[in-house]
Design a protein around this nucleic acid. Structure first.
Lengths: 236, 236
DNA sequence: TAAATTAACTTAGGCGTACAAGTTTTTTGT
DNA sequence: ACAAAAAACTTGTACGCCTAAGTTAATTTA
């Protein structure tokens, strides 16, 4: 049995989503809700706090609880295309060096995205690549793929050298959405060696989570980019 | 004077950030904290709830409050929405300091995107802002807007403090597409001063070009981001 | 000595009261 | 009719108490 405050939260949320309360409307006051539902005001306040956290209402001291427009999703940054396709479109001579070939591994104990229980159980396929433009290394890419029904992904070479093309052609996997997370970091010893930059250089660090048409299949990538000569973008 | 529960929240957060409590440690129990601070347990619980929401602790019924590694908060992407709206959706306490108010200027002689002849002739509206989460500066944003039929943009305050909302509401300008360009750079003296980081720190540098429903109206932004505490992403 | 049980600890949920602080409505005075 | 003051409303903060539910430690029993 759900706690009262959660039942109340769902109840009010349903009323908002059904249009009973519209954006700009005031909800009944806390004391009105208390009388209405026959519960203590602390239960009311806890429910309203959750609705505030979710963005459904805005509480204003002295005024009331105002119905807000629920938060919307934002557009993605980098395109869903992988490195190979992006860079080839830019007419650059690109080379990929496989540092760690695809192999089945367990997930790292500390991972940059949350992993579901299902994914924990299946383990992942891991590979690590160094991307170069000409002879200049520009990116280290570590990729983890939920190991869900992907036979021979480890043993066969990639179609046109592209992981995404291989997933698409051989496994009917399609990317539906990508989560992105960007930061700037200082190059540690390993990254500095791979990218041939001084330790401590500024690198662009991108975490990606690709959602696919398969419910439990996600692709995670961590990209460390030397952007001195080649930045990362979505345009030509 | 800050409420007691917020003082307590900051107090415990400082203890975590300073290393007094490390990841995996148990905080003192709620009743211990109550005795320690001489306040009511509901104040304790409210403070701990905030720390839970921020990701600093994990509360476990019957066990205690476990110190977690604070997740890197994302500031919302580089969506077509601007910083104000993105961050407000994520319920972070955001503050914008106008370093250079909007004013008509000529384009810089060296610009990070190609400028059309038409734009060259009209000049641009330039403004520069420092974005803070709480009191922590996280981003310096320089914005250049093609000066095409935007009366009073320089003289009136922004609607809800948001440039994009102002353009939309007052000038019927809509964003149709965004070009993005990312790189990691070392903080120069000016950026280091504004963002309160050591010179040479790694900063995320993002160039944006927003296309609009007006043929000759583009909005260009250069963002310098300190991503130590708040990365840039498109998810919460 | 090990397992089971009990006690003591923890957080979770719910109840209640009181006053502070902000906003709106009503009343009063001119 | 309008402005000022007071009243009544709202949410915010803090206090207090109780039982439920989960975890750990201590005690008892076999």
């Amino acid at each position: 049995m759900e706690p009262l405050y959660r039942q109340l939260q769902q109840n009010i949320k349903s009323q908002i989503l059904s249009g009973l309360y519209r954006e700009g409307d005031l909800l009944p006051s806390e004391s009105e809700l208390q009388k209405l539902h026959g519960v203590n005001r602390s239960v009311i306040r806890q429910a309203l706090n959750l609705l505030t956290n979710e963005g459904y209402i805005i509480k204003k001291q002295g005024k009331g609880s105002i119905v807000a427009r629920p938060p919307r999703r934002t557009l993605g940054l980098l395109s869903v295309k992988g490195f190979s396709q992006n860079v080839s479109e830019h007419k650059l001579t690109v080379k990929t060096v496989m540092i760690d070939k695809p192999s089945v591994k367990s997930w790292p104990s500390v991972f940059f995205y949350n992993i579901s229980d299902m994914e924990q159980r299946t383990g992942c396929i891991y590979l690590k690549r160094l991307r170069c433009v000409g002879e200049e290394p520009v990116m280290v890419e570590s990729t983890y793929i939920s190991n869900v029904n992907l036979p021979r992904l480890c043993s066969r070479p990639f179609v046109n050298g592209s992981l995404f093309e291989t997933l698409n052609v051989n496994h009917e996997v399609e990317i539906t959405k990508v989560d992105q997370d960007l930061r700037a970091v200082a190059a540690d010893e390993e990254a500095a060696g791979l990218l041939r930059v001084p330790q401590g250089s500024s690198l662009l660090h991108i975490y990606l989570k690709f959602h696919t048409n398969r419910q439990h299949l996600f692709i995670y990538s961590s990209l460390l980019c030397n952007t001195a000569d080649y930045s990362i973008g979505n345009h030509l």
